[in-house]
Nucleic acid binder design. Structure first.
Lengths: 158, 158
DNA sequence: GCCATATAATAAGGATTACTTATTAATATG
DNA sequence: CATATTAATAAGTAATCCTTATTATATGGC
């Protein structure tokens, strides 16, 4: 991939990185015998972190629609990595929980993700890397803000 | 999106940003009456930059498979933004060129992309932003290297 | 010259991510 | 108690990207 002006700006680079990281994750987890997509991995990590959690809340955490999550949970449930349990507080809701098998898989994925991360950071000053993460989080927060502003003015205008 | 340890590392953030930027691009280009997907946009920018170019070379530039590009070019050709011309040097090959309409669309997209970029960079020190870009390009180069190394050892081992 | 091999593009088909709209069931509110 | 809201999902769509196989053309070795 060439480093030229307008075709190598922030958006392009981020898009490239996202595709490359996804492909690397697929490749390395595949080699390790773990058939897991990036989306499924994201769900597992977040379920582990956020404990038994309602699908709505989990979708919000992931920044995806409830319906999109529904399909991901279907697949993960089929693989035996998560379970849907009734929410005692609300009979409509289901709590997504990590199974033992799911926890084991997350533990296996963790070092793979860390490996990709350290490959990516190779040769970059650790302080620079920390600043990079801070700036990226700030950029994400900025874009989320401008998106929600656009949504609110839209609903005000319409 | 919460800022917690293992669920907010480099890969997760990059993935988030990629999704958010794509959604913002879709939204803003849609508002401007330009029905263009991110993939199509990438192709247009690269065709403008790399002039009449063979599909194989263009796919390589974009880091996607020739077949994937074929579909994108189909759609762009349908919209009248690019044309396939025979390569005088090789009758199998086709040169993808930007039409006048395509050039006009790229010119319209450019400020939209710049707007997203400036929204993202809001409140971040310009020097930090420059360092961010340098570090991101380095990370991308690192990952591309580790990928090609993995491919070569794979073929050696097998 | 001629055959084997390699290359350029594409046809065909599949997986994943993610969306929207509408439905069902259950809960909350006025 | 009727209405509105919420949780999950069914159904259908679209984009991106992949793999494998096919067709046409080039090219290098004999």
């Amino acid at each position: 991939m060439p480093a030229s002006s307008e075709t190598d700006t922030f958006g392009f680079i981020v898009n490239d990185l996202s595709r490359i990281i996804r492909a690397e994750m697929d490749r390395r987890t595949g080699e390790a015998g773990l058939g897991l997509t990036t989306g499924e991995g994201r769900v597992l990590f977040n379920v582990r972190r956020a404990g038994p959690i309602r699908q709505t809340a989990l979708a919000e955490r992931l920044g995806i629609e409830a319906m999109t999550l529904s399909g991901l949970v279907d697949r993960l449930e089929g693989k035996g990595y998560v379970a849907r349990q009734p929410d005692p507080a609300d009979r409509r809701a289901k709590l997504v929980t990590l199974t033992d098998a799911g926890a084991a898989v997350v533990a296996q994925i963790e070092p793979i993700a860390a490996g990709i991360r350290s490959d990516a950071a190779q040769g970059i000053d650790p302080d620079d890397w920390q600043r990079l993460l801070v700036a990226l989080r700030a950029a994400r927060a900025n874009l989320l803000t401008s998106r929600s502003e656009a949504q609110s003015t839209e609903s005000t205008a319409a």
